[in-house]
Amino acid sequence: MTSGSGDGGSVLLRVDGVGKTYVSRERTVQALAGIDLAVRDGEFVSVVGPSGGGKTTLLKIVAGLLPATAGEVVLGGRRVTEPPAELGIVFQEYGRSLFAWKTVRENVELPLRQRRTPKAERRALVDEALEAVGLDGVGTAYPWQLSGGMQQRVAIARAIAYRPRLLLMDEPFSAVDAQTRGDLEDLLARLWRRYAITVLFITHDIDEAVYLSERVVVLGSAPAAVRAEIAVDLPAERDQLSTRSDPRFAELRAQVYAQIRRPPADAGPVASASIRQETVTT
């Protein structure tokens, strides 16, 4: 294990040597080459990596939606073979993940209904989630009547209304403007702190990864392995203005950036361990 999950809190999610090779008639693609990762209960971990590097693949395997071809995923001591209970998810293809025949409100409500949450509580959760993402006015609209950014917020509302124990998000803010993006980041940070959710957050945006997380995991290009893990030692209370202008913030994002840009030849667990050392000593 190369992850820095030793310090406090039990491990909720363990990804052990997970590999994935897609085999179809035309071609064979190795997307993941042995991912090792451990996430503590209540931790916020971001995953960054190049496009086509296997991030979505990893997320789907963790969600129990896709079988790994090597290794295993263990969540709360149980091996994941199907989607576990109390899992919230926001897909990269947010538009296609909404149920087209249901209104915005019904979309957010459906998982709660399935879980048999009592009606009054359900209504309160849905109202709160829709308001939190700034969509309280459009509950009766159908998804196609919304803009891309609004659809994305519906998917986010659905995930947070569910009050998951583990929240998986695949580039969930990719379609919203900078202002909304900042608001949603802060919303997510608040919810994470308030409800002790464990978050695995995939993003292309290095600043966002550093701003939100306790730890940033850098994946290499496909077939991906963990290239580096960088502990984010910024104060727990973060703020768009002061945190982002903190010199330490700039250092951390430079580190993440350097890891992403590093040529793949010298990538490997050794390098990732040394980086961890670095962040601890600085």
């Binding site: 209970a85 897909f91 993940s97 149920f99 025949w101 459906l110 399935q114």
Partner: peptide, 27 residues
């Protein structure tokens, strides 16, 4: 849609809920 089905699976819409969902999507 594959993603629609994956979403349903992730939120554990199984059994009848899933059949209904597929029929509705195909309606």
């Amino acid at each position: 849609d594959e993603v629609t089905l994956e979403t349903a699976a992730a939120y554990r819409l199984t059994g009848w809920a899933r059949h209904r969902l597929v029929l509705r999507a195909a309606s």
